[in-house]
C-alpha cells in the first residue's frame, strides 16, 4: 500500500467519523424543532433549537463575559493541575517519604465531594476567583498526579539498568528515561483533568452563587432558571458543552502530536 492511498483512506475515515455523528445530531435537532412546533410546547418548558440559537445572539452581551469568566477559571485550574500534579509526582518519585506523608491528603481531597467543601472554601478564600479556582483545581489535579506517578514508575527495568551501567546522573535519568516513559500516562491523566476542570469550575460557580461582574456561565444558568428563562439556560448550556468538546479535541490533538510517532495507543489498528 502506498502512502498516498493510506492518506486518502485515513481522510475518508476522518470524514466518516465526523459526518455520521453530525448527521445524527442534525436529525435529532430537526425532530426536536418539529415536536416543539407541532405540539405547541411553550418556551418556558422546552424552547425549540431555533429559539435557543436566537437567544444566543440576542443575549450575547450577557453570555459572552460570563463565558470568558468560566473559560478563565477552567484554563487556570487546568494549568494549576498540570503544575501541581506533575510537581507533586516528581517529588513523590524523588522520595518515598514525601509520598507516604502527602499522598493520603491527595486522596482525601479527591474522595471528598467538592460540593461539600466548597462553602468552606468560600469562607476562607480571599476572593471569589481564587475560591472558584481552588475548587476546580481540587477536582482536576488528582488524575494528573496519580497518572504521572504511575508513569514515572513504569520505565523499563532493563533501561533503568542501562542508565545505571553508564553512570547516568539523576537529572539525566529523569529527563531521558522517566519523563518520556511517563508522558503517555500524563497525557491520559490530562485528558481526564481537562474535562474535570470545566466540571469543577461549573460546580464551584453553582455553590459560590456569585452575582455581579465575577459571575460565569453556571451562575447565568441559575439566574435564568429563577426567571424561567429556559431558552437562556439552554444557550448557556450550549456554550458549556462547546467548551468541553473544545478541550477534549485540543487535548486529543496534543496527544497525537506528542505520541503519534511512537506510542502504541496512537498507531493505526491494522498495519
Amino acid at each position: 500500500m502506498s502512502d498516498a492511498t493510506a492518506t486518502t483512506r485515513s481522510r475518508h475515515r476522518l470524514a466518516a467519523d465526523l459526518a455520521v455523528p453530525l448527521l445524527i445530531a442534525l436529525l435529532a435537532l430537526g425532530a426536536w424543532e418539529a415536536i416543539v412546533r407541532w405540539r405547541d410546547v411553550p418556551a418556558y418548558i422546552l424552547p425549540a433549537p431555533s429559539l435557543i440559537a436566537r437567544t444566543l445572539v440576542t443575549d450575547w452581551g450577557t453570555l459572552w463575559p460570563a463565558w470568558l469568566i468560566t473559560l478563565k477559571v477552567t484554563a487556570l485550574a487546568l494549568l494549576a493541575s498540570i503544575v501541581g500534579g506533575v510537581g507533586l509526582a516528581f517529588l513523590f518519585t524523588l522520595s518515598r517519604w514525601i509520598e507516604r506523608s502527602l499522598f493520603p491528603f491527595a486522596i482525601i481531597l479527591q474522595v471528598t465531594p467538592i460540593i461539600a467543601i466548597a462553602p468552606l472554601i468560600l469562607i476562607y478564600a480571599p476572593n471569589t476567583l481564587s475560591a472558584l479556582l481552588l475548587c476546580a483545581w481540587i477536582v482536576a489535579f488528582f488524575p494528573v498526579l496519580s497518572n504521572t506517578v504511575t508513569g514515572l514508575r513504569s520505565a523499563d527495568r532493563n533501561l533503568q539498568d542501562l542508565f545505571t551501567l553508564y553512570g547516568a546522573t539523576r537529572w539525566q535519568r529523569l529527563r531521558l528515561l522517566l519523563a518520556p516513559s511517563a508522558l503517555p500516562y500524563f497525557l491520559a491523566g490530562l485528558r481526564i483533568a481537562g474535562g474535570l476542570s470545566l466540571i469543577g469550575a461549573v460546580i464551584a460557580e453553582f455553590t459560590a452563587g456569585t452575582a455581579g461582574q465575577e459571575s460565569g456561565l453556571a451562575w447565568r444558568i441559575l439566574e435564568a432558571s429563577f426567571r424561567l428563562n429556559v431558552a437562556r439556560m439552554f444557550a448557556a448550556l450550549t456554550l458549556i458543552s462547546v467548551t468541553g468538546i473544545a478541550i477534549f479535541v485540543a487535548l486529543n490533538i496534543l496527544t497525537r502530536k506528542l505520541l503519534g510517532h511512537w506510542h502504541e495507543s496512537q498507531l493505526p489498528e491494522h498495519r
Binding site: 523499563d156 532493563n158 533501561l159 542501562l162 542508565f163 553508564y166 553512570g167 547516568a168 539525566q172 531521558l176 528515561l177 518520556p180 508522558l183 510517532h261 511512537w262 506510542h263
Partner: peptide
Amino acid sequence: TLMPWARVFDNVHLPLRL
C-alpha cells in the same frame, strides 16, 4: 530494550550522551 520514543540514532547515541 530500546527507547520507543527515540530514533535508532538516538538509541545508539544514549551511552555516549550519558
